[in-house]
Computed example of a mutant assay.
Amino acid sequence: MARDISTNRFAAQNRKARHDYSINDTIEAGLQLMGSEVKSLRLGRCSINEAFAAERDGEFWLINAHFPEYDAANRFNHEPGRPRKLLLKKRQVVKLINATQRDGVTVVPLAIYFNDRGRAKCELGVAKGRRQADKRAAIKDRDWKRDQARIVRNRGGD
């Protein structure tokens, strides 16, 4: 049976990140995972709500991501909270290091998904934290745009 490759299949999303942070740039990174981690990820049981990416020795690592143990893996299981290496090109690593050295800028995972080849990918966002007033303004703008679309849609039906 052929696999449906028409859409990216999200295994985990960090929806709150787009609310808490202003995303300036996004980068797709590969993940270095063990077999039991991939199995757990395919079940959609991963949590990246508290996760972030940090630089160690010239490489980026995904920290605080929780991949629960895969029950059928027995003794070959993985540690659920271990740091996972992000697979990036050297140019991307340098770009992220330069970005994080600025004040208030961090790298947060926005989503983990499987691409069309079945490889696990992590979408990283170069983000700057929002203040409470900025969050309220973003909610206000989003609600107003939704109301505008509703008004236009209702006028078109007359």
Rank of each mutant, 00 (worst) to 15 (best):
D103A: 13
D71L: 13
Q92A: 15
K89N: 14
N98K: 14
G125L: 03
D25L: 14
I112D: 00
N74G: 14
R131F: 04
P80C: 13
G129Y: 08
A111T: 05
G35N: 05
I63N: 11
L43C: 03
E28Q: 03
V93M: 12
Q132G: 00
Q13H: 06
R131Q: 11
L31S: 04
R18H: 02
P83M: 02
G35Q: 06
A53H: 04
I63L: 06
H19W: 14
S36T: 13
Q101A: 14
N49A: 08
I27V: 15
P109V: 07
A72D: 14
A120N: 02
R136P: 00
R84H: 08
A17G: 03
E37M: 05
V107H: 10
G125K: 03
D57E: 13
L62F: 01
N77D: 12
L124M: 06
T106Y: 08
V105R: 05
K16E: 09
A111L: 01
D134H: 02
I27E: 13
K121Q: 11
T26H: 03
G58H: 01
K135F: 05
E123G: 00
A73P: 00
I97G: 06
Q92G: 07
M34C: 07
A138E: 15
K89S: 13
K39Q: 12
I97A: 13
L86S: 06
K85R: 15
A138H: 11
A51H: 03
G30L: 05
I23V: 14
I63W: 07
F76V: 04
A53C: 10
N64F: 04
D25Q: 15
T26V: 12
L96Y: 05
I23T: 03
K128A: 11
F10R: 07
K121Y: 01
Q13M: 10
R15Q: 10
I97C: 04
T100K: 07
E79W: 09
Q132Y: 06
K128V: 15
R136A: 13
L110F: 10
V105D: 04
A99F: 12
